[in-house]
Amino acid sequence: MAYSSKVIDHFENPRNAGSLDPKATDVGTGLVGAPACGDVLKLQIRVNEAGIIQEAKFKTFGCGSAIASSSLVTEMIRGKTLDEAGAIKNTVIAQELELPPVKIHCSMLAEDAIKAAIADYLSKKEAGSSQA
């Protein structure tokens, strides 16, 4: 299968690969996929008090398209509000990376990872404010 040049670029030069402290109150972690299915995406976001994503990091177990999709979304969501980031659709990711039909699920996982990271951040924030 031939990969698009964009997938190859993200695969060879992954943007924002790494981890944030999952225990930090301003960090949300999304872990989606399953090892048995051959794809696991971990996406982490650091959110400021204004609700804007300041930093995003990923780690991914998967094919080139899965790695590229994760790398791309870390760039896409930085500087966005949680609502804006949560509204990103997988089709945008798939189009940007020119993913073939068999790899569309990679973009869907990336979308799920954003939503999971936001949900984790919000649940932490809620838990924090109810304790206060």
Partner: peptide, 24 residues
């Protein structure tokens, strides 16, 4: 492996099988 979340978990001593993975 440096960008693999599973490798990271293994290094931290987390048993990957103990996690409830969502099948997709």
């Amino acid at each position: 492996r440096k960008i693999s979340p599973l490798w990271e978990m293994a290094q931290e001593g987390i048993d990957i099988k103990s996690i409830q993975w969502a099948a997709h």
